[in-house]
C-alpha cells in the first residue's frame, strides 16, 4: 500500500539508465576537446586501430589503454619522421598537431581488450625471459621497465594483450635499428634471438 502511495518520480516516467544517458548527453557538448578526439579517432584512426583502440588486424597495434605521454610522443615521432612507418607517415599528415594531445588522451582512456595466447608452451618460455631476462647474453628482464603485468608507463609502452605479429615486428625493427626511438630498446633487441622474440611476443599477448 505504501509503495503505491509513494511512487518515485523516476520510476513513473523513465528508467534510470535513460535518465543517466540524457544527463551524459547534456554534458557532452561542453567537452569539445574530447568529442574532437573521438571524431578524429572514428574517421581517421579507426580503420586500423579501431575506434576504441583495440585493433582487430594483428598488423596494427592495439593502442587502447596505453600511457597518454607515450602515445603523444609516438605521434610526434611519426610526424617528425623520427619513427618510420609507411602507413602512419601518410596518415599523420591528416591530423593537426594541435590535436595530438587530445587524441593521445582519448586512446589512453579506452579500455584495452585482452589478447590471446596461441601456444602455451612458447608463452611459458617467454614468461621466464620476460621476468628474468637472459643473464648469459645480457638481456634484462622486460618486467624491469615494462612492469610485471606489462602495463607500461610514459616511457615504456604497455605490452599486455598486444598482437603477437605487431610485437614481433617492433622487436625486429629495434633489432635492425629501423626503429631507434629508444636506445635502450635497440640494445636489448640486438641481444635477443629470433626464437626469444617469438616467445616474448607470445607471452605478452596473454598478459
Amino acid at each position: 500500500m505504501i509503495a503505491i502511495a509513494s511512487p518515485s518520480l523516476f520510476q513513473s516516467h523513465l528508467p534510470h539508465w535513460a535518465l543517466l544517458a540524457l544527463l551524459a548527453l547534456s554534458v557532452m557538448p561542453h567537452q569539445a576537446v574530447a568529442s574532437d578526439a573521438r571524431a578524429i579517432a572514428t574517421t581517421i584512426c579507426a580503420a586500423c586501430h579501431g575506434a576504441d583502440g583495440n585493433s582487430t588486424d594483428p598488423a596494427y597495434p592495439k593502442i587502447a589503454g596505453m600511457d597518454e605521454g607515450y602515445l603523444l610522443r609516438q605521434l610526434r615521432y611519426f610526424a617528425s619522421g623520427k619513427r618510420r612507418n609507411e602507413v602512419m607517415e601518410t596518415i599523420i599528415k591528416d591530423i593537426r598537431e594541435a590535436d595530438f594531445s587530445s587524441l593521445a588522451n582519448y586512446y589512453s582512456a579506452q579500455k584495452p581488450l585482452p589478447g590471446k595466447v596461441n601456444n602455451a608452451q612458447l608463452a611459458a618460455v617467454g614468461k621466464r625471459l620476460y621476468e628474468d631476462g637472459n643473464t648469459e647474453t645480457g638481456v634484462p628482464a622486460c618486467a624491469g621497465c615494462h612492469q610485471p603485468d606489462g602495463d607500461g608507463n610514459a616511457r615504456f609502452p604497455r605490452l599486455a594483450g598486444q598482437h603477437q605479429v605487431y610485437t614481433l615486428q617492433q622487436l625486429g625493427n629495434y633489432h635492425s635499428g629501423r626503429r631507434a626511438t629508444d636506445r635502450l630498446m635497440v640494445a636489448v633487441a640486438q641481444r635477443l634471438s629470433a626464437d626469444e622474440m617469438k616467445a616474448l611476443a607470445e607471452y605478452v599477448a596473454g598478459l
Partner: peptide
C-alpha cells in the same frame, strides 16, 4: 633505477647466481 632493475632486480638485491 627502473632501467637497472631488469638485471639488478627490484631493491637491487642482484642475482643469487652472481650473474649480477
Amino acid at each position: 633505477f627502473v632501467i637497472c632493475q631488469g638485471c639488478h632486480r627490484s631493491a637491487a638485491v642482484g642475482r643469487v647466481d652472481g650473474s649480477y
